[in-house]
């Protein structure tokens, strides 16, 4: 498999893989903060949220240059998937800013 094709295939799932990792991280931080009573719990969560959104923005706004028919089509689908992942990241984790952390 050529390098460009491999990257196109990976970029198709890149955004949502980051989203999944972020999901686990935020859910884990939420649980740990409650278990150990962190005083800066919400600040930590909002910071993690910010980092996650920033990382998700990279593949969403920085499309790959592609060569070849297959990877060109893949790249378009990948761009949309990565933008969907960014949207999902912004919306799903927005509650860290206002919902109650441990009740």
């Amino acid at each position: 498999m050529r390098q460009g094709d491999k990257i196109a295939l990976i970029s198709l799932v890149a955004g949502f893989t980051v989203w999944s990792v972020g999901f686990v991280a935020l859910y884990g931080l939420q649980a740990l903060g409650c278990a150990y009573g962190w005083p800066t719990h919400r600040a930590v969560l909002i910071l993690a949220y910010g980092i996650l959104v920033a990382v998700l923005a990279v593949p969403a706004f920085w499309p790959l240059r592609s060569d070849g028919e297959a990877s060109a089509t893949l790249s378009v689908a990948a761009l949309w998937a990565n933008r969907a992942a960014l949207g999902a990241g912004v919306l799903v984790f927005l509650p860290v800013t206002f919902t109650s952390t441990c009740v």
Partner: peptide
Amino acid sequence: LMLLTGTALVLGEQLLPR
């Protein structure tokens, strides 16, 4: 969906035994 989820979350906050 945004409106609905937002409303539900605000409502949910008010129902919490705080």
